[in-house]
Design a protein around this nucleic acid. Structure first.
Lengths: 212, 212
DNA sequence: GACCTCAGTGAACAGACGTGCACTGAGCCT
DNA sequence: AGGCTCAGTGCACGTCTGTTCACTGAGGTC
């Protein structure tokens, strides 16, 4: 790749990183100004337009890149689920590790999921639906849930995604410090319990195609 | 009450309403300016200071007033749960009705829960913990769950609150129009199923004080 | 009726904002 | 070597922001 485009990509990434960094201090994307993002990326404001049409454009790009990362993480979590001996605990532990490692990315999604502009919200909702659908597929591989019909599995997957999303938000609100590990472990413990409840409850759902 | 304070309260309420109205169009509270809130409330910007120290102050007041409403709603949902013959379906139906009726209030909470400034987020998290705790108490009155210890009930309550909060967010994203009722009914149906799964799963949790 | 209180006014400020424009100069192509 | 491309610069503009200050006049008190 030529020096030219390589440098362009570099500043482009600097802009995306700058936006995430500014949000890491607890501000929403909508509250960021074009000028301060440019400033944080060591760029003059007008140069911003060489990379994005406006802040909305950057926001949508951020969603895309973010979910590229997130889909990769989900794939690894799913593998951890298959290989380990305690599926649920392993998945949750791997997931918590990823949230910790990619804090800014998760912070962005959690914040903008409901706080963002309508197009950003729509895109995030779409991506979360994909994750839910994938999870619904995976549930069919659990022996206790193999008898469930598609609709029921979808509903159960949605419930699990809700629980994990909620945990993610709480994980990000844990203040850094000496007690961090304990707090994280407590959240993980609770989520594992919740998964156990859900799977047990789902296994007890009577027969397929019963909708009551 | 004197005419004087009555009028003051009226403009104060106009400011709070103006903020909610401006947010109803999909913007976050942090993206609102003091001037436009004053403008929407038919007030000169400087008069804003007669009521709130700054926008953060107004934001926290909004959280307080919002949860005053919400706590009332929760009480009524709980009563619906006790009186009706199908506890879960009735609760959910009543709840969905309230979300529809108090759209702006719920929009505010859902948006600012993760998108708001740290103090606003902290306050919302606190209020949600209260709701969770109350629900954990209520769960003890369900025969199938009476044997659960406090910790387990708390965990189950948290799971339910997650599911309902998620549904609330989706409810608010349903576009107004001809298909609205159907979409809402579908979300309600799914949530009722989820509650059934959770209760069944929780009932199957082995013995109290077992923590695995 | 005279005085006080204080919610709301209106002008003014310094600073930040988004965006248009003409520019520079390093990187690339021929 | 000469010319083109285009990421990044610097200046300028009009608009909006939060906040200050001295003010007005209706409502309440005596």
């Amino acid at each position: 790749m030529s020096v030219r485009v390589e440098r362009k990509l570099h500043t482009r990434q600097a802009l995306l990183d700058a936006a995430l960094d500014l949000m890491a201090e607890g501000r929403s994307f909508g509250a960021l100004s074009l000028r301060e993002v440019a400033r944080a990326a060591q760029i003059v404001p007008t140069a911003f337009y060489r990379h994005f049409r406006d802040m909305d454009d950057l926001g949508l790009t951020l969603v895309d890149e973010t979910f590229l990362t997130l889909r990769r993480l989900m794939r690894e979590v799913r593998q951890a689920a298959r290989s380990g001996h305690d599926m649920r605990a392993d998945s949750v532990r791997v997931y918590v590790g990823y949230v910790r490692e990619h804090r800014r990315v998760f912070e962005f999604v959690i914040r903008e999921r409901h706080g963002g502009t309508p197009p950003v919200r729509a895109e995030i909702a779409r991506e979360i639906r994909f994750i839910t659908t994938d999870l619904a597929d995976d549930l069919a591989t659990i022996p206790a849930l193999a008898h469930l019909d598609r609709d029921t599995r979808e509903v159960v997957a949605h419930l699990i995604v809700s629980a994990v999303a909620t945990m993610t938000g709480e994980l990000l609100d844990v203040p850094p410090g000496p007690g961090t590990d304990d707090a994280e472990a407590e959240l993980a413990r609770r989520t594992v319990m919740q998964l156990a409840v859900v799977v047990r409850g789902a296994a007890a759902v009577p027969t397929p195609t019963s909708t009551d």
